[in-house]
Each structure stands twice: as structure tokens, then as C-alpha cells.
């Protein structure tokens, strides 16, 4: 697994939760939005997305509801209160991680070469 894939896998829960803050979405919509909003960086294989969604549902971070839209039954995922708390915790953790990483790389002039 490449470093990029490792980072993406490690951030799967966070990016999905952050996408669902504004409104509930269904699986296909989530995969499309992730790709579009990140310029393709967070484009996620379905084989990774659906197990992640179901896992977060089992943990109580997401709740689901089947809706019939344009003749198709779609399973919508929405954040629960617990999911929102987890998102806040993970956001703080990622912010700290990025700050520390930035500090480390700047101190060693890695960014500028």
C-alpha cells in the first residue's frame, strides 16, 4: 500500500463524517462528493466505502433511513450526536497532527527543500 493509500485509509472515517455534517447522503452520493470536493484525492473505492459506512453505523456514529427518490430506494446516512462528537474529536486530532507535522517539516526545511 502506497503512503497516499495509507493516509486515505487512516482518514476514511473522518472525511466521511465531515461530509455528512450538512445533510444526510447515500453511498453513491458520498463517493461522488468525496471525489469532486477533493479534486479526486479522496476518491474512495466502493470496497472501502461501504464497509466503513456500515462499521460507523454499527458503532452508532451514523443512523440510516431508506427513502424512495426518483423511483429508487436509497439508504441515507446521517450523523448521530455520537458521530458529531467523534467528528469533533477527530478534527482536533487531525489539526494537531497537521500542526506538528508542519512544524517538523519546516524545522528541517523539508517543505522548501
Amino acid at each position: 500500500m502506497s503512503p497516499r493509500d495509507q493516509i486515505r485509509k487512516g482518514s476514511t472515517d473522518f472525511v466521511v463524517l465531515s461530509l455528512l455534517v450538512k445533510r444526510p447522503m447515500y453511498g453513491y452520493e458520498i463517493s461522488q462528493q468525496l471525489g469532486q470536493r477533493s479534486g479526486g484525492y479522496f476518491e474512495m473505492k466502493e470496497g472501502l466505502l461501504y464497509p466503513a459506512l456500515h462499521h460507523m453505523q454499527e458503532k452508532g456514529w451514523l443512523t440510516t433511513e431508506w427513502r424512495k427518490v426518483e423511483g429508487r430506494r436509497r439508504k441515507y446516512y446521517a450523523l448521530t450526536k455520537m458521530g458529531l462528537e467523534v467528528l469533533d474529536q477527530q478534527a482536533a486530532e487531525w489539526k494537531t497532527f497537521l500542526e506538528k507535522l508542519d512544524g517538523l517539516l519546516q524545522a528541517n526545511d523539508v517543505w522548501t527543500g
Binding site: 473505492k45 466502493e46 470496497g47 461501504y50 464497509p51 456500515h54 462499521h55 454499527e58
Partner: peptide
């Protein structure tokens, strides 16, 4: 192909089987 049928089946199996 993106679903990776054996892998996604195995992962879903583990998640829902426990439940």
C-alpha cells in the same frame, strides 16, 4: 472491480455477523 467482491464481502460479513 472497485468493489473488490471477495474483499468487500468478507468485510461486510465480519461487521454484520458480529452484530
Amino acid at each position: 472491480e472497485r468493489f473488490g467482491i471477495p474483499e468487500v464481502s468478507a468485510e461486510l460479513q465480519v461487521i454484520h455477523n458480529n452484530h
